[in-house]
Nucleic acid binder design. Sequence first.
DNA 1: GCGACAG
DNA 2: ATCTTGTCGC
Length: 230
Amino acid sequence: MNTMLTEQEAIQLQEELRPKVIRTDELPAHIKLIAGVDVEYDKESDLIAGAFVLLDFNTLEVVEVATHCMQVTFPYIPGLFSFREMPVLLEAWKKLERRPDLVICDGQGIAHPRRFGLACHMGVLLDVPALGCGKTRLFGKYEELAAERGAVSPLLAEDNGEHIGNALRTQNGISPVFVSTGHKVSLDTATAMVLKMSVTYRLPETTRKADHYGREAFIAFRENQGKELL
DNA sequence: GCGACAG
DNA sequence: ATCTTGTCGC
């Protein structure tokens, strides 16, 4: 049986893993496979579904999908979000046959109070280039940015003023997303990647596809659970 | 003590 | 995350 991690132990683990994060580009010059991840939650019951989706970087076609369902093992605590979502995503990752050149995470990377958001956690544990693309801000201040797609405004850490991420407008007149380094990807590359993957909607196609397949897997899982009870 | 707070 | 109709704006 797994003993649930305490809040203090989780923070301790973040401090231990943080030094392993690489904030510079150490990914292939020409990306072929790009991945998206997402986790779905059940409103009642503590079931969650994690999904990894691999897309062809040039055509954006789905190459592979891997999902996993299980019960949540950690509560939602701002700053410790990765401890809630990593377990399911690790299981989904094990089912993946191919390895992506870059993973786009739904959440923050370095733009985190201890500089260790979900994208860093995933990148370090799986040793894969990863970046964080959050829908809302967790940490850091930024100035308003132009209304046009492509507009960028630096996210500066409240504690030391460090440039930890970018608020990026992916569509004209739509609220920005928050991009930051996860592991083995520079902020500039991460920002360019998110903009390139956000062709029609606010969020990158990787995240949208992962959300779709995660939802689908969740429904299928619940139906099977119901049958087993008969 | 009073906000802020990824999903 | 999730519960949810109408509604404000282009």
